[in-house]
Protein backbone atom coordinates (compact mmCIF):
# COMPACT_ATOMS: atom_id res chain seq x y z
CA UNK A 1 0.00 0.00 0.00
CA UNK A 2 1.25 3.49 -0.76
CA UNK A 3 2.11 5.69 2.26
CA UNK A 4 -0.80 7.64 3.69
CA UNK A 5 -0.84 11.44 3.91
CA UNK A 6 0.22 12.76 7.32
CA UNK A 7 -3.15 14.27 8.22
CA UNK A 8 -4.92 10.93 7.76
CA UNK A 9 -2.28 9.12 9.79
CA UNK A 10 -2.95 11.52 12.65
CA UNK A 11 -6.67 10.88 12.51
CA UNK A 12 -6.10 7.10 12.39
CA UNK A 13 -3.93 7.37 15.48
CA UNK A 14 -6.59 9.38 17.23
CA UNK A 15 -9.25 6.82 16.41
CA UNK A 16 -7.01 3.99 17.58
CA UNK A 17 -6.36 5.86 20.79
CA UNK A 18 -10.09 6.37 21.38
CA UNK A 19 -10.75 2.68 20.64
CA UNK A 20 -8.00 1.62 23.03
CA UNK A 21 -9.44 3.83 25.75
CA UNK A 22 -12.86 2.33 25.19
CA UNK A 23 -11.51 -1.20 25.30
CA UNK A 24 -9.72 -0.54 28.55
CA UNK A 25 -12.74 1.10 30.09
CA UNK A 26 -15.45 -1.27 28.94
CA UNK A 27 -14.92 -4.36 26.84
CA UNK A 28 -17.85 -5.13 24.52
CA UNK A 29 -19.54 -8.23 25.86
CA UNK A 30 -22.52 -9.99 24.40
CA UNK A 31 -25.21 -11.43 26.63
CA UNK A 32 -24.12 -14.99 25.76
CA UNK A 33 -20.66 -14.23 27.12
CA UNK A 34 -21.93 -13.12 30.50
CA UNK A 35 -24.62 -15.80 30.93
CA UNK A 36 -23.91 -17.56 34.22
CA UNK A 37 -22.82 -21.18 34.15
CA UNK A 38 -25.16 -23.54 35.92
CA UNK A 39 -22.60 -26.16 36.89
CA UNK A 40 -19.83 -26.21 39.44
CA UNK A 41 -17.36 -28.32 37.48
CA UNK A 42 -16.84 -28.78 33.75
CA UNK A 43 -16.20 -32.47 34.39
CA UNK A 44 -17.59 -34.33 37.38
CA UNK A 45 -17.44 -38.08 37.84
CA UNK A 46 -18.50 -40.08 40.85
CA UNK A 47 -18.02 -43.81 41.11
CA UNK A 48 -17.51 -43.83 37.34
CA UNK A 49 -17.01 -47.22 35.72
CA UNK A 50 -16.20 -47.64 32.04
CA UNK A 51 -15.53 -50.87 30.18
CA UNK A 52 -12.75 -51.28 27.64
CA UNK A 53 -13.84 -54.03 25.31
CA UNK A 54 -16.38 -56.52 26.53
CA UNK A 55 -15.34 -57.35 30.05
CA UNK A 56 -12.37 -55.41 31.40
CA UNK A 57 -13.36 -52.49 33.63
CA UNK A 58 -10.64 -50.00 32.64
CA UNK A 59 -12.08 -47.19 34.75
CA UNK A 60 -13.30 -48.62 38.00
CA UNK A 61 -14.94 -46.35 40.55
CA UNK A 62 -13.43 -42.99 39.66
CA UNK A 63 -14.30 -39.83 41.58
CA UNK A 64 -13.08 -36.72 39.84
CA UNK A 65 -13.95 -33.03 39.60
CA UNK A 66 -12.22 -30.84 37.04
CA UNK A 67 -12.76 -27.14 36.37
CA UNK A 68 -11.15 -24.61 34.04
CA UNK A 69 -7.42 -25.08 33.53
CA UNK A 70 -5.00 -27.60 32.09
CA UNK A 71 -5.21 -30.98 33.77
CA UNK A 72 -2.48 -33.49 33.12
CA UNK A 73 -3.81 -37.04 33.21
CA UNK A 74 -0.79 -39.08 34.18
CA UNK A 75 -0.44 -42.79 34.66
CA UNK A 76 1.40 -45.90 33.52
CA UNK A 77 0.51 -47.60 30.24
CA UNK A 78 -2.70 -49.56 30.61
CA UNK A 79 -3.91 -47.45 33.53
CA UNK A 80 -7.14 -46.67 31.68
CA UNK A 81 -6.29 -43.16 30.50
CA UNK A 82 -7.53 -43.68 26.95
CA UNK A 83 -10.74 -45.33 28.16
CA UNK A 84 -11.40 -42.42 30.53
CA UNK A 85 -10.76 -39.85 27.78
CA UNK A 86 -13.10 -41.77 25.46
CA UNK A 87 -15.79 -41.75 28.12
CA UNK A 88 -15.28 -37.98 28.56
CA UNK A 89 -15.59 -37.60 24.78
CA UNK A 90 -18.91 -39.54 25.09
CA UNK A 91 -17.86 -42.19 22.57
CA UNK A 92 -17.90 -44.79 25.35
CA UNK A 93 -20.85 -44.76 27.73
CA UNK A 94 -20.36 -45.36 31.46
CA UNK A 95 -21.05 -48.88 32.68
CA UNK A 96 -21.77 -47.52 36.15
CA UNK A 97 -21.54 -44.46 38.36
CA UNK A 98 -22.20 -40.92 37.26
CA UNK A 99 -20.58 -38.67 34.70
CA UNK A 100 -21.54 -35.04 34.22
CA UNK A 101 -20.02 -32.86 31.50
CA UNK A 102 -20.81 -29.13 31.49
CA UNK A 103 -23.68 -29.91 33.81
CA UNK A 104 -25.23 -32.52 31.50
CA UNK A 105 -25.45 -36.09 32.69
CA UNK A 106 -23.93 -38.57 30.23
CA UNK A 107 -25.31 -42.08 30.03
CA UNK A 108 -27.73 -44.33 28.21
CA UNK A 109 -28.17 -43.85 24.50
CA UNK A 110 -28.73 -40.12 24.17
CA UNK A 111 -27.14 -38.31 21.22
CA UNK A 112 -25.86 -35.38 23.39
CA UNK A 113 -25.66 -33.11 20.36
CA UNK A 114 -25.62 -29.79 22.23
CA UNK A 115 -22.98 -31.09 24.63
CA UNK A 116 -20.79 -32.49 21.85
CA UNK A 117 -20.72 -29.12 20.08
CA UNK A 118 -18.74 -27.84 23.08
CA UNK A 119 -16.26 -30.71 23.27
CA UNK A 120 -12.98 -30.99 21.37
CA UNK A 121 -11.36 -34.41 21.13
CA UNK A 122 -8.08 -35.69 19.75
CA UNK A 123 -7.89 -39.50 19.97
CA UNK A 124 -4.58 -41.21 20.55
CA UNK A 125 -4.57 -42.92 17.17
CA UNK A 126 -6.42 -40.49 15.06
CA UNK A 127 -7.25 -41.33 11.48
CA UNK A 128 -7.76 -38.94 8.60
CA UNK A 129 -8.42 -39.07 4.88
CA UNK A 130 -5.05 -38.94 3.13
CA UNK A 131 -6.27 -37.08 0.07
CA UNK A 132 -7.76 -34.22 2.07
CA UNK A 133 -5.75 -31.05 2.51
CA UNK A 134 -5.26 -29.78 6.07
CA UNK A 135 -7.90 -27.13 5.45
CA UNK A 136 -10.40 -29.63 4.02
CA UNK A 137 -9.82 -31.97 6.95
CA UNK A 138 -10.38 -29.25 9.55
CA UNK A 139 -13.37 -27.89 7.57
CA UNK A 140 -14.90 -31.36 7.43
CA UNK A 141 -14.47 -31.74 11.18
CA UNK A 142 -15.96 -28.27 11.73
CA UNK A 143 -18.97 -29.34 9.65
CA UNK A 144 -19.31 -32.55 11.69
CA UNK A 145 -19.16 -30.43 14.85
CA UNK A 146 -22.03 -28.29 13.58
CA UNK A 147 -20.06 -25.06 13.49
CA UNK A 148 -22.41 -22.58 11.71
CA UNK A 149 -21.69 -22.69 7.98
CA UNK A 150 -20.80 -19.00 7.73
CA UNK A 151 -18.25 -19.32 10.57
CA UNK A 152 -16.43 -22.38 9.19
CA UNK A 153 -13.79 -20.68 6.96
CA UNK A 154 -12.82 -18.22 9.71
CA UNK A 155 -12.81 -20.82 12.48
CA UNK A 156 -10.70 -23.17 10.36
CA UNK A 157 -8.18 -20.45 9.52
CA UNK A 158 -7.87 -19.48 13.22
CA UNK A 159 -7.39 -23.10 14.32
CA UNK A 160 -4.80 -23.79 11.63
CA UNK A 161 -2.92 -20.61 12.53
CA UNK A 162 -2.92 -21.46 16.23
CA UNK A 163 -1.12 -24.73 15.57
CA UNK A 164 1.31 -23.07 13.15
CA UNK A 165 0.14 -24.82 10.00
CA UNK A 166 -1.15 -21.76 8.11
CA UNK A 167 1.54 -22.03 5.45
CA UNK A 168 0.83 -25.75 4.90
CA UNK A 169 -2.95 -25.51 5.06
CA UNK A 170 -3.48 -26.34 1.40
CA UNK A 171 -1.18 -29.34 1.32
CA UNK A 172 -2.55 -32.83 1.39
CA UNK A 173 -2.49 -34.68 4.70
CA UNK A 174 -0.42 -37.51 3.23
CA UNK A 175 2.39 -35.06 2.42
CA UNK A 176 2.78 -33.96 6.06
CA UNK A 177 5.26 -35.22 8.64
CA UNK A 178 4.06 -37.03 11.77
CA UNK A 179 4.35 -33.90 13.92
CA UNK A 180 2.36 -31.84 11.43
CA UNK A 181 -0.38 -34.45 11.23
CA UNK A 182 -0.62 -34.34 15.02
CA UNK A 183 -0.88 -30.54 14.87
CA UNK A 184 -3.63 -30.83 12.27
CA UNK A 185 -5.34 -33.13 14.78
CA UNK A 186 -5.03 -30.48 17.48
CA UNK A 187 -6.44 -27.90 15.02
CA UNK A 188 -9.58 -29.99 14.43
CA UNK A 189 -9.99 -30.41 18.20
CA UNK A 190 -10.01 -26.64 18.82
CA UNK A 191 -11.91 -25.56 15.70
CA UNK A 192 -15.23 -25.33 17.59
CA UNK A 193 -13.73 -23.34 20.52
CA UNK A 194 -14.56 -26.16 22.94
CA UNK A 195 -15.33 -25.66 26.63
CA UNK A 196 -13.96 -29.14 27.29
CA UNK A 197 -10.87 -30.12 25.31
CA UNK A 198 -9.66 -33.72 25.51
CA UNK A 199 -6.24 -34.56 24.12
CA UNK A 200 -5.00 -38.13 24.27
CA UNK A 201 -1.18 -38.23 24.05
CA UNK A 202 -1.01 -35.06 21.93
CA UNK A 203 2.77 -34.64 22.15
CA UNK A 204 3.65 -37.97 20.52
CA UNK A 205 5.60 -37.22 17.34
CA UNK A 206 6.28 -33.56 18.14
CA UNK A 207 9.89 -32.42 18.13
CA UNK A 208 11.24 -30.49 21.17
CA UNK A 209 10.60 -27.04 19.66
CA UNK A 210 7.04 -27.99 18.68
CA UNK A 211 6.53 -29.39 22.14
CA UNK A 212 7.42 -26.04 23.70
CA UNK A 213 5.06 -24.23 21.36
CA UNK A 214 2.36 -26.77 22.15
CA UNK A 215 2.74 -26.17 25.88
CA UNK A 216 2.25 -22.44 25.31
CA UNK A 217 -0.89 -23.19 23.31
CA UNK A 218 -2.15 -25.44 26.12
CA UNK A 219 -1.69 -22.69 28.71
CA UNK A 220 -3.51 -20.27 26.43
CA UNK A 221 -6.40 -22.69 25.93
CA UNK A 222 -6.55 -23.50 29.64
CA UNK A 223 -7.42 -19.94 30.61
CA UNK A 224 -11.07 -20.35 29.65
CA UNK A 225 -11.58 -24.03 28.92
CA UNK A 226 -11.22 -27.29 30.79
CA UNK A 227 -8.32 -29.02 29.04
CA UNK A 228 -7.54 -32.66 29.85
CA UNK A 229 -4.23 -33.88 28.47
CA UNK A 230 -3.41 -37.53 28.83
CA UNK A 231 0.28 -38.29 28.76
CA UNK A 232 2.86 -40.62 30.15
CA UNK A 233 5.55 -37.93 29.97
CA UNK A 234 6.02 -36.29 33.33
CA UNK A 235 7.87 -33.27 31.88
CA UNK A 236 4.84 -32.29 29.74
CA UNK A 237 2.82 -32.05 32.92
CA UNK A 238 5.43 -30.03 34.78
CA UNK A 239 5.65 -27.42 32.06
CA UNK A 240 2.07 -26.89 31.01
CA UNK A 241 -0.42 -28.19 33.56
CA UNK A 242 -2.10 -26.34 36.39
CA UNK A 243 -3.24 -29.59 37.91
CA UNK A 244 -2.10 -33.23 37.88
CA UNK A 245 -4.44 -36.20 37.97
CA UNK A 246 -2.58 -39.40 38.69
CA UNK A 247 -4.44 -42.44 37.57
CA UNK A 248 -3.61 -46.12 38.01
CA UNK A 249 -5.62 -49.30 37.53
CA UNK A 250 -8.77 -47.37 36.81
CA UNK A 251 -8.71 -45.33 39.99
CA UNK A 252 -7.65 -41.86 41.06
CA UNK A 253 -4.39 -42.04 42.99
CA UNK A 254 -3.62 -38.36 43.38
CA UNK A 255 -4.95 -34.96 42.34
CA UNK A 256 -3.08 -31.75 43.01
CA UNK A 257 -0.67 -29.18 41.63
CA UNK A 258 2.63 -30.23 40.03
CA UNK A 259 4.39 -28.83 43.13
CA UNK A 260 2.36 -31.10 45.39
CA UNK A 261 3.23 -34.06 43.18
CA UNK A 262 6.92 -33.17 43.45
CA UNK A 263 6.61 -32.86 47.24
CA UNK A 264 5.28 -36.41 47.49
CA UNK A 265 8.61 -37.88 46.41
CA UNK A 266 11.81 -38.17 48.41
CA UNK A 267 15.42 -38.90 47.46
CA UNK A 268 14.82 -42.62 48.00
CA UNK A 269 12.35 -42.79 45.11
CA UNK A 270 13.20 -43.58 41.50
CA UNK A 271 13.37 -40.72 39.00
CA UNK A 272 15.50 -37.99 37.45
CA UNK A 273 13.39 -35.01 38.52
CA UNK A 274 11.34 -34.16 41.63
CA UNK A 275 8.13 -34.79 39.64
CA UNK A 276 9.30 -38.22 38.52
CA UNK A 277 10.22 -39.09 42.10
CA UNK A 278 6.79 -37.92 43.27
CA UNK A 279 5.21 -39.97 40.50
CA UNK A 280 7.06 -43.14 41.45
CA UNK A 281 6.44 -42.54 45.18
CA UNK A 282 2.67 -42.33 44.63
CA UNK A 283 2.56 -45.29 42.29
CA UNK A 284 5.03 -47.37 44.27
CA UNK A 285 4.18 -51.01 44.51
CA UNK A 286 4.61 -52.16 48.13
CA UNK A 287 6.75 -55.05 46.91
CA UNK A 288 8.32 -54.07 43.61
CA UNK A 289 9.47 -56.97 41.53
CA UNK A 290 13.02 -56.38 40.41
CA UNK A 291 13.92 -56.73 36.76
CA UNK A 292 10.39 -56.58 35.41
CA UNK A 293 8.46 -53.81 33.69
Amino acid sequence: MKPEPLSRMTSINEINEINEQRKRAMPAVSSADVAPTTYAWEIRASGLKVRAGRTRMAVNGLDLSLGTGVHGLLGPNGAGKTTLIRALATVLRPAGGELELLGESVGGLGEHRALRRRIGYLPQEFGYYKRFTVREFVEYMAWLKEVPKADIPGAVQRAVERVGLADRADERMKALSGGMVRRAGIAQAIVNDPAVLLLDEPTVGLDPAQRLRFRELLQELGTDACVVVSTHLVEDVAAACTDVVLFAEGRLVFQGTPAELAAAGGPEHVGDSPLERGYSALLADPEPTKGTW
Binding site: P123, F126, G127
Partner: peptide
Protein backbone atom coordinates in the same frame (compact mmCIF):
# COMPACT_ATOMS: atom_id res chain seq x y z
CA UNK B 1 -12.07 -48.90 6.16
CA UNK B 2 -12.86 -45.52 7.69
CA UNK B 3 -9.70 -44.16 9.33
CA UNK B 4 -11.54 -41.23 10.91
CA UNK B 5 -14.17 -43.38 12.60
CA UNK B 6 -13.31 -42.36 16.15
CA UNK B 7 -13.20 -38.64 15.34
CA UNK B 8 -16.48 -38.93 13.47
CA UNK B 9 -18.20 -40.84 16.27
CA UNK B 10 -17.35 -38.10 18.77
CA UNK B 11 -19.05 -35.28 16.82
CA UNK B 12 -22.58 -33.96 17.26
CA UNK B 13 -23.54 -34.98 13.73
CA UNK B 14 -22.80 -38.65 14.47
CA UNK B 15 -25.98 -40.53 15.24
CA UNK B 16 -29.16 -40.56 13.22
CA UNK B 17 -28.23 -37.72 10.90
CA UNK B 18 -24.98 -39.28 9.70
Amino acid sequence: LDPAYELTASTPRAGLQL
